[in-house]
Structure formats: structure tokens, C-alpha cells
């Protein structure tokens, strides 16, 4: 059996499950942020920074970006294996995707704990 070494969970079933867990986190965070913005049409900086000063909002946001890392890794891995048959090209593409996702993670940590 040929095992994929570049997929997130190293197995199709694991990726399938992680894609769904991460999707649920992302859906909940979307509802949360869109809800906050809809119910606070004239948001001030004090309200906005006060929201993100709360520990649970920081953790929820970090969990969401971790979910994006997993979800996009699995999703874009699938796209790459479909359209990039050349191994070197696919590895290059996947490295670029991972680098971008890592930057997203670092940028979020800095945004949340840096203010």
C-alpha cells in the first residue's frame, strides 16, 4: 500500500474526520463574529479591543486559526493531488501553502497577544 506522506493526518479517514471537526469550529466562529458585528453596528475601538481582551475570545480565535491551518492543509492537499501530477511541483506548492498557513498562525498570535 502506498501511504501519502504529505496529507495532514496520514490517512484518508483521519483527514475526513479532522476536516469535519475543523469545519464545525469555523462555522461556530463565523456565526460568533458575524453575530457580534451585526448586533454592534457602530462598534468603537474600546468595544472591539475589549472583546478581544477577554481570554476566551483569544482562545476561541486561536482555535479557529488552528482549524484553518488543518482545514486548508487538507483541502488544498486534495486540490494539489488532483491538478499537480508532477511530484516536485506538488511538493513546492504544498510547502508554499504550509508556509502561508504558518504565517497566518504567527500573525494571529501577535495580533491577539501583542496589543
Amino acid at each position: 500500500m502506498v501511504r501519502s506522506v504529505t496529507s495532514f493526518g496520514r490517512s484518508g479517514l483521519s483527514d475526513w474526520l479532522l476536516q469535519r471537526f475543523s469545519a464545525i469550529v469555523l462555522a461556530l466562529y463565523t456565526l460568533f463574529i458575524v453575530g457580534v458585528l451585526l448586533f454592534t453596528p457602530d462598534m468603537s475601538y474600546e468595544q472591539w479591543s475589549g472583546l478581544f481582551a477577554q481570554e476566551w475570545v483569544k482562545i476561541f480565535t486561536l482555535l479557529t486559526v488552528l482549524s484553518i491551518v488543518i482545514h486548508a492543509w487538507i483541502g488544498l492537499w486534495t486540490v494539489g493531488t488532483d491538478y499537480l501530477p508532477k511530484v516536485w511541483l506538488r511538493l513546492l506548492y504544498q510547502s508554499a501553502v504550509l508556509l502561508v498557513l504558518f504565517v497566518y498562525l504567527i500573525a494571529t498570535v501577535r495580533a491577539l497577544w501583542g496589543f
Partner: peptide
């Protein structure tokens, strides 16, 4: 579904950048 996923991968960069700037200071928020 696939195309929207790729758009989201790119759009996330702007969202995270905007989040960082909006939290950095009142001027950044503005």
C-alpha cells in the same frame, strides 16, 4: 465549493492583517 475554498485561503490573509491592525491602536481601528 473548491474555488470558494481557495478564495478563502487568500482572503484569510486580509482578515488576519485587518484584525491585527484593528486591535493595535485606536488609530489602527480607524
Amino acid at each position: 465549493h473548491r474555488i470558494s475554498g481557495i478564495v478563502l485561503f487568500v482572503g484569510t490573509a486580509f482578515l488576519i492583517w485587518a484584525l491585527g491592525l484593528s486591535l493595535s491602536s485606536a488609530q489602527g481601528f480607524e
